[in-house]
Design a protein around this nucleic acid. Structure first.
Length: 908
RNA sequence: GGGCUGUUAGCUCAGUUGGUUUAGAGCGUUGCUUUGACAGAGCAAAGGUCACUGGUUCGAAUCCAGUACAGCCCACCA
């Protein structure tokens, strides 16, 4: 299969080829069998979205885990899918309809709107799947699930009805977060608070004058004729446009400034209502003016105070954020315009005393980014307390392991311990419609179909309704997402089916920490409630992807790179590499193109290593004399690399177990680049014009294969491509499904050398080579220039195995062993071995001395620190014996080194 | 206000039960090499009192406390 290999690796040419090959072979499909399952469900991206770098990171991590599992004997199953994202998608569809077709949502019927929405979904929903493919993700496409699929829809409804019947879902009027732009209720989690520079307005509320004569006759106070006097209470407010909804003014009961006013009345500005002055310890007398206006309809705290003091509620806002009839003034005006108008009016009336800069935090809708309005509204809620208990238990008991644990356990716990009821109804059309049915009086039943509703109604109220109308609202998107790990296997609609039994609980959930409450905690609740079991064994939280300056990726800043463009530029493997290499678990990562560069260079490095090995092969390998001692020596490189490979593989297993993937990648990277390419290949490289030993070649190919296998989970395309170039393969022999352990057959190795010794010898060989190179470099000797190397050593047996490798450093020069120093040579001391380098060139004695002097100083300093330790009695007494022993060895070592350097210095 | 992280080389980050040397990597920088796998490269080098202060210990980048700075989450007092 000898073909021309391109100069550099060209990812674009092969990615498409391999992905379709893998699909053709059905490698990513999973069906229950007698292997152990390894299951991951993808966090379903929003159907209308595109993958940003956060997704890219998540998907890459999942693919690494699933590919590793697939290559380790597991039945790996990765379920892809997407989320209907009710509010986000509906907003986009509404916008599109207005922009492109001039259609307003409220001009359409529900059915017509949904038709447009599904069209939109079909048109744009495929984008994310395309991106997942381009990234090389090994998902089981047969299992693609959408949260509005028929069975999924049914599951959501089934769960709603079930929870309602269990008394865990209720309907009621509460103060909720209202999104005036989308005109829907939101859950607490969908509100994001941001610091805002606002203003505090100080407004006079005039006090109603009481007739002096009647002061002592309490009963008659209310009936007495009232006049407005000059006395007033000053009230600070951020929201003058809500003044019309004021129903009281509240002060602290012990506040001397206002004590005399409690029980009297004040006039609400702008509308001239008369409202009482009440007292409550809730008020902080030291804040603002110590007097608070009470607007129960538009503030959560005021609402609570209103309940306590039995105050009326005046809702002055329409659902769209304009002022309602109840406001009496500025009716129909937007809330922010009304604020300006109110300020102007207050000024005109002489009631605005001052304005103050004030920094505060305002709630914004996560989806539409408009300021959220607290509003009283009848909505559906899930009682969370009971569900939260089980979800808390699952994590605190260690049943579910969170990575990195320390950081997120506390957050998770705190939320569950303080969880409030979950508002699940949304005034939207795109989503699962709430299965509640109302008669003309507003009595309702919960049932899946109208027919069932009628029966239920008969049962509940003992009569037939004149008509039944289904609730117009849909459910929060997360009310469907929380069933994801169950219903992708039909676990709700078809409980106990073989698939859910086999795949559930899933192995690991990989997601962003930002949805720990929205999704993770709630999935645990649903899992415990409907499967009586945790939904996943492990949760792996990835960090946020930020730009180089640490800013969040956002469309507005334009700092969010387009994934397809990145892949186009660098190749999918390089992008995966780039995002993963800088992403330790749970830490935010600052993404920079340059890490993709590194990935691309890595591709290229491997590619060129392949070219080198294939060139040896093309030149024809021959059999060296296997019986000879020389051959044994020559194989030290292979012995060393095999030991190295073994060691690193063990390290990798540990890193995988701990979910330390970026470290695992770094480890493989360094194994390939440094150990394999920089050392091993250079060591076994035959001299120019000579042929390689065929056994050594086989061995090298085996190593290469194994390296590709280790790297494959991270960089699937380049590794699969190289795997097929290394050797010709049978149909169906692909790296993607090749099992670890298939490779790594017994290579030849020097029988007398143990792994540790081979590694140690390799390390000192590297040290020697580096020192010789350094000397050459400092002396300006070119690599081709011959040198004579004289080795003065106390352990000549060490060199028998590595002499041939050392010989590569002398070009066509010679190696000799000497008993004494060599005059007029450059001296290098490595450990206790001395190397004398003889050249044609004249040597710079001073530079030599300087270098040795520097070494000497270092060693002496080191010796000093070791001696200090050893002379400390308490160290010798308390430290572990092996530590003391190690120090003693270090001391001896340093002393020998010093002696060697001193001798060399003396000889100069 | 409550909670949680982080502060290590110019930049971005590793450093897993405290003890293989006086701390590593990538990028960047500086030399040299246009060498027959690779200039998207090789070889070599420079660069850090591990934020600060104290404590525990024979021994601290590592454990503890405090301080400073940075960031995140939660709560949401006009």
């Amino acid at each position: 299969m000898s073909i021309e290999l391109s100069k550099n690796f060209e990812p674009q040419a092969i990615e498409e080829k391999w992905y379709s090959h893998w699909l053709d072979k059905d490698y990513f499909s999973s069906r229950p069998d007698d292997r152990k399952p390894y299951t991951i469900v993808i966090p379903p991206p929003n159907v209308t979205g595109v993958l940003h770098l956060g997704h890219t990171l998540n998907e890459t991590v999942q693919d690494v885990l699933i590919r590793k599992a697939r290559m380790s004997g597991y039945n790996a199953c990765w379920v892809p899918g997407s989320d209907h994202a009710s509010i986000a998608t509906e907003a986009k569809v509404v916008q599109m309809l207005e922009k492109e077709k001039g259609i307003h949502k409220h001009d359409l019927t529900r059915e017509a709107f949904l038709k447009h929405a599904f069209e939109w979904k079909d048109k744009y929903g495929g984008i994310i799947y395309h991106q997942i493919k381009k990234l090389g993700c090994s998902v089981d496409w047969n299992r693609t699930t959408f949260t509005m699929d028929d069975h999924y829809y049914k599951a959501v409804i089934k769960v709603f009805i079930d929870l309602f019947n269990k008394g865990l879902i209720y309907r009621g009027a509460r103060i909720i977060n209202w999104d005036p732009q989308a005109q829907t209720a939101l859950s607490d989690e969908e509100v994001e608070y941001k610091d805002i520079q606002g203003k505090l307005y100080y407004v006079k509320y005039k006090v109603v004058k009481v007739e002096t004569a009647n002061v002592n006759e309490e009963a008659s106070i209310d009936n007495s004729p009232l006049t407005i006097g000059d006395e007033f209470i000053l009230i600070a407010t951020q929201r003058p446009e809500t003044i019309m909804g004021d129903v009281a003014v509240c002060v602290h009961p012990q506040d001397e400034r206002y004590k005399h006013l409690i029980g009297r009345k004040v006039i609400v500005p702008l509308v001239n209502h008369e409202v009482p002055v009440i007292a409550d310890e809730y008020v902080d007398p030291t804040f603002g003016t110590g007097a608070l206006k009470i607007t129960p309809a538009h503030d959560i705290n005021d609402y609570n105070l209103g309940l306590k003091h039995n105050l009326p509620i005046i809702d002055t806002l329409n659902p769209d954020g304009t002022l309602s009839e109840a406001a009496q003034v500025f009716v129909g005006m937007d809330r922010f315009d009304a604020r300006k108008a109110a300020i102007d009016q207050l000024k005109e009336d002489g009631l605005l005393v001052k304005e103050e800069e004030y920094s505060t935090r305002l709630g914004f809708s996560q989806r539409t980014n408009c300021v959220v309005e607290p509003r009283i509204s009848t909505q559906w809620f899930v009682k969370m307390k009971e569900l939260a208990g089980k979800a808390l238990e699952a994590v605190t008991s260690g049943d579910i392991k969170i990575h990195p644990e320390e950081r997120f356990l506390a957050t998770y716990k705190y939320w569950l311990e303080n969880v409030k009821d979950w508002c699940i109804s949304r005034q939207l059309w795109w989503g699962q419609r709430i299965p509640a049915w109302y008669d003309e009086e507003g009595l309702f039943v919960v049932a899946e179909t109208e027919t069932e509703a009628k029966e239920a109604f008969q049962k509940a109220f003992n009569r037939q309704p004149a008509s039944l109308v289904q609730d117009a609202d849909v459910l929060d998107t997360w009310f469907s997402s929380w069933l994801w790990p169950i219903e992708v296997f039909n676990g709700i609609t078809d409980p106990g089916n073989p698939e859910i039994d086999y795949y559930y609980p899933t192995s690991v959930l990989v997601t962003g920490q930002d949805i720990i409450f929205f999704w993770v905690a709630r999935m645990v609740m649903a899992g415990e409630e409907y499967m009586n079991e945790r939904p996943f064994e492990h949760v792996y939280f990835t960090g946020m992807v930020r730009d180089k300056q640490g800013r969040k990726m956002s469309k507005q800043l334009g700092n969010s790179p387009d994934l397809l463009e990145l892949i186009e530029r660098f190749g999918a493997d390089a992008v995966r590499f780039g995002i993963l290499i800088s992403a330790p678990a749970g830490n935010d990562l600052l993404f920079d193109d340059s890490s993709c560069d590194q990935g691309r260079n890595f591709n290229n490095k491997i590619w060129n290593a392949l070219k080198l090995v294939k060139m040896w092969e093309a030149n024809g390998a021959i059999a060296y004399d296997r019986s000879g001692e020389d051959f044994e020596k020559a194989t030290f490189a292979a012995t060393w690399f095999e030991a190295r490979l073994k060691k690193v593989k063990a390290e990798l297993e540990e890193l995988y177990t701990d979910f330390r993937l970026s470290e695992a990648l770094k480890t493989v990277y360094s194994l390939i680049w440094d150990d394999f390419c920089s050392w091993y290949l250079e060591w076994v490289k035959p001299p120019f014009g000579e042929k390689i030993d065929n056994h050594l070649l086989t061995c090298t190919l085996d190593f290469f294969e194994e390296l590709m296998q280790l790297l494959h989970p991270f960089m699937p395309f380049v590794t699969e491509e190289i795997y097929h170039h290394l050797r010709s393969r049978e149909e169906g022999d692909d790296l993607t499904i090749r099992q670890q352990g298939d490779l790594g057959k017994n290579h030849f190795s020097i029988s007398a050398i143990k792994d540790e010794d081979a590694l140690a010898l390799g390390r000192s060989l590297q040290e020697m080579i580096t020192a010789i190179r350094d000397t050459r470099s400092k002396a300006g000797l070119k690599p081709k220039e011959n040198i004579s190397l004289h080795i003065q050593t106390t352990a000549p047996e060490l060199f028998t195995n590595i002499e041939s490798l050392l010989a590569k450093q002398v070009a066509a020069g010679t190696i000799q062993y000497v008993a004494d120093s060599v005059p007029n040579a450059m001296t290098v001391v490595v450990g206790t071995n001395k190397f004398y380098i003889e050249t044609e060139q004249e040597i710079d004695i001073e530079a030599q001395k300087e270098k040795l002097q520097k070494d000497l100083e270092y060693q002496r300093g080191f010796l000093l620190s070791v001696e200090k330790k050893l002379s400390n009695e308490r160290f010798v007494q308390n430290a572990k014996p092996e530590v003391v022993e190690a120090e003693r060895r270090k001391k001896q070592d340093a002393e020998e080194k010093i002696r060697a350097i001193e001798e060399s210095l003396a000889n100069l």
